[in-house]
Design a protein around this nucleic acid. Structure first.
Lengths: 151, 151
DNA sequence: TATAGAAAGTCAACATGTTTACTATCAATA
DNA sequence: TATTGATAGTAAACATGTTGACTTTCTATA
């Protein structure tokens, strides 16, 4: 099944299709972990960014730039996170245009609950890789990202 | 920007986040190519599967299994492809439950138009990789996929 | 041969991504 | 200072992904 589909793919395409599949499989499994705690994949990432920010807060545009996701997507993600009590939204008194997002105690607690299970999964996904192989893989992936940016 | 976010990530997380970013960047750029010809990323993949199938046709469930995408997603993708004349839908006389998808002449033509630009892009994305490095990268990605399946 | 269960699809509800349009505010400058 | 352009964010329209419910049709078997 699928053999006739793959047989005429070039070496380049094989690599890049495997890249997409590996990423999607990874996202699917960690999403299952997040979902048990009421979070989607991008919601979790937004929480992580806020948790690592000074005072647990940051403006939407800043989060957008770190996540490499258009600002337009942030609105809905933040709205749902706020609805479920993981963050609060405040306006910046010094600039009325700005919306500041801040992680709540519930948000921080949830990240803690997720942490171990997530780390275990990531570790098992990289089973069979020596440290230097992880490093080489990381460099390869960075080169792919760099190459695609230049196009 | 983003430094404080990244600084406390483990080596495992660095690799897997780079994996997701590389895949998303790749998808974004090839999607631009496809869009010029009226196709989305999954629509293109569905066309590719049909084009590589016997007589240019296959049942929805089969395409779903190859693309590793739930059948429920296939319905809408096929409907939009049919609406724009890239495929037709037929029912299987031997099994009334089955929907058969078949690529049209327009669909095949469109794949031909896309082919070169897409190959050029994939080649430039893998610039700087020797053949044996591509091979190693592919093996690494396959191992990631295999590892994540076992969880 | 009824009937229960499996298989193939569709549909609905929701979250997300993408693009475009829009509002509100701020900043620069004529 | 009034106007113009840049910034920050939201909203709407669409395509996709995910899950679960549902219909239709087969298939196995009691």
């Amino acid at each position: 099944m699928g053999i006739s589909y793959r047989s005429d793919l070039s070496a380049d395409e094989n690599v890049l299709m495997a890249l997409v599949r590996a990423a999607e499989t990874f996202k699917r499994v960690v999403s299952n972990i997040f979902r048990k705690h009421g979070l989607s994949f991008p919601q979790y990432n937004m929480l992580r960014v806020l948790d690592a920010s000074k005072d647990g807060q940051s403006r939407i545009t800043h989060v957008s730039r770190i996540m490499l996701v258009p600002v337009a997507n942030m609105t809905g993600i933040a709205r749902r996170l706020e609805k479920n009590g993981f963050i609060v939204r405040k306006s910046d008194p010094t600039d009325e245009r700005v919306t500041i997002l801040e992680i709540t105690a519930k948000g921080k607690r949830t990240l803690t609950y997720i942490e171990k299970e997530r780390d275990d999964y990531m570790h098992s996904m990289l089973k069979g890789f020596a440290e230097h192989e992880k490093h080489t893989l990381l460099e390869n992936l960075k080169l792919l990202i760099k190459n695609s940016r230049k196009i």
